[in-house]
Simulated assay, not measured.
Amino acid sequence: MAAAGTSGFQAMKACLAVTFALLSFSHAFAQSRKTENLVVIVLDGMRWQEVFEGADSALINKPQFTRNKDRIKSRYWNDDAKKRREKLMPFFWNTVAAQGVVYGNRNFGNTADVTNPFRLTYPGFSEMLTGFADPAISSNRLVTSKSQNVLEFINRQNAYQGKVAVFATSDLFPFLLDRANSKLYINADSDSLAFLSKEFQLLNEMQRLSNKPTTERPDLLTYFAAREYVKAYKPKVLYLALGETDAFAHQGNYDQYLETAKAEDQMISELWTLMQSMPQYKDKTTLIVTCDHGRGNQIKEQWIGHGAQIKDSGEIWIAAMGPDIKASGEAKNKGQLYQAQLAATMAAILGFDFQPETHKAMEPIRSLILK
């Protein structure tokens, strides 16, 4: 009995030591953090293969996927993978990676994955923002999520109330974020901008007249709406979800998939440059760039799709830079990260501990919350 009691006491001491260490870690970060603003940008269905290796020659050379091979090769091809990826995403590699960190290059055994088994858009965004694989979100059907999300949580904190804004190309966000109850500002898909300035009214008119290249509004309109909102209302948290990389991939249009990735890299660059010119954001903002799911690759024809039957479509990537993130560049060490960690990471970057009332969220990515 004495031995069992001693063992139990030692276990309790160990548990208390771990708890104290975690509390000390959180306290140290809260005291030292410089980040006051957070920007999260998601490129829907953007494969890690193009992010880390640039344009895929196997897809370029398949006429059913690449309509104008010569143009695509002239714009995006180089025999050197590092040069190829910089051609495709120059801001991502020359600024985000150079000043921050990028995870998910599986060639080095550095892996990032979704935990939901569905490998679809709604489950992916749900996992990212709630911190767990919600079994109630198993498809892209537009059902209202009952699980607390991190953006709603942040919007309830002092100094962040009414300062969290979501701009999305997809129509799923009002359901995922429960617009009726969350009190978040959400502008998604066909939503108009209920502001009187000439810039917002022009965007409304452009949206009304636009010829949608996919089933949703063009990413360009989502981007400009977010940019004008930043200029006018200066949110402390901006979540921007772009969708055309996924849409053009589903069409099997590799030309436009690459062109869209390049255009969105430029959008991120210009948004970041704008924000760094504004006193509220300069040197006080952390940027996260990621995706909601991957795409097929082992069977090349499966690059157009994703889902439970395409195992490698659960492979993602995560990048971040900001004043509290060590500039370590491309992660080349073996390691495993999960999409579900992003929710708690977003909160922790701002100094908050995301503990949802509805479920248990996965712990944050520690390397992103303390240098």
Score class of each variant (00 low, 15 high):
residue 159 A to S: 12
residue 151 L to I: 04
residue 143 V to W: 02
residue 114 V to G: 03
residue 157 Q to E: 13
residue 128 M to E: 06
residue 119 R to V: 08
residue 141 R to F: 01
residue 157 Q to Y: 06
residue 148 Q to L: 10
residue 128 M to R: 05
residue 124 G to M: 08
residue 133 A to E: 11
residue 128 M to W: 05
residue 116 N to G: 12
residue 139 S to R: 14
residue 156 R to L: 04
residue 135 P to C: 15
residue 149 N to P: 08
residue 151 L to R: 03
residue 134 D to G: 03
residue 135 P to Y: 12
residue 129 L to A: 02
residue 142 L to Y: 13
residue 131 G to N: 05
residue 155 N to I: 00
residue 144 T to W: 10
residue 117 P to A: 07
residue 163 K to T: 00
residue 132 F to P: 01
residue 129 L to K: 01
residue 118 F to K: 10
residue 127 E to I: 07
residue 114 V to H: 03
residue 130 T to H: 03
residue 145 S to F: 08
residue 159 A to D: 10
residue 150 V to Y: 09
residue 131 G to E: 05
residue 130 T to G: 07
residue 124 G to T: 07
residue 161 Q to S: 00
residue 137 I to A: 10
residue 139 S to N: 12
residue 146 K to C: 08
residue 152 E to Y: 04
residue 148 Q to K: 13
residue 156 R to M: 04
residue 131 G to V: 12
residue 161 Q to E: 04
residue 143 V to K: 15
residue 121 T to W: 10
residue 157 Q to L: 05
residue 147 S to Y: 07
residue 127 E to S: 11
residue 138 S to H: 11
residue 122 Y to M: 15
residue 139 S to L: 13
residue 138 S to V: 01
residue 125 F to V: 04
residue 158 N to D: 11
residue 144 T to R: 15
residue 118 F to H: 13
residue 155 N to C: 01
residue 159 A to F: 01
residue 161 Q to T: 02
residue 122 Y to H: 14
residue 115 T to V: 11
residue 153 F to Q: 04
residue 123 P to L: 04
residue 162 G to T: 00
residue 143 V to L: 13
residue 114 V to M: 06
residue 124 G to Y: 07
residue 137 I to Q: 11
residue 132 F to H: 12
residue 151 L to M: 06
residue 143 V to A: 12
residue 124 G to E: 08
residue 160 Y to K: 02
residue 135 P to I: 14
residue 115 T to F: 02
residue 154 I to V: 09
residue 160 Y to L: 03
residue 129 L to V: 08
residue 154 I to C: 00
residue 141 R to H: 01
residue 128 M to G: 06
residue 135 P to L: 14
residue 115 T to M: 09
residue 117 P to C: 06
residue 158 N to R: 09
residue 137 I to T: 14
residue 116 N to L: 03
residue 155 N to M: 02
residue 135 P to M: 14
residue 123 P to C: 08
residue 130 T to L: 04
residue 125 F to D: 01
residue 135 P to G: 14
residue 157 Q to M: 14
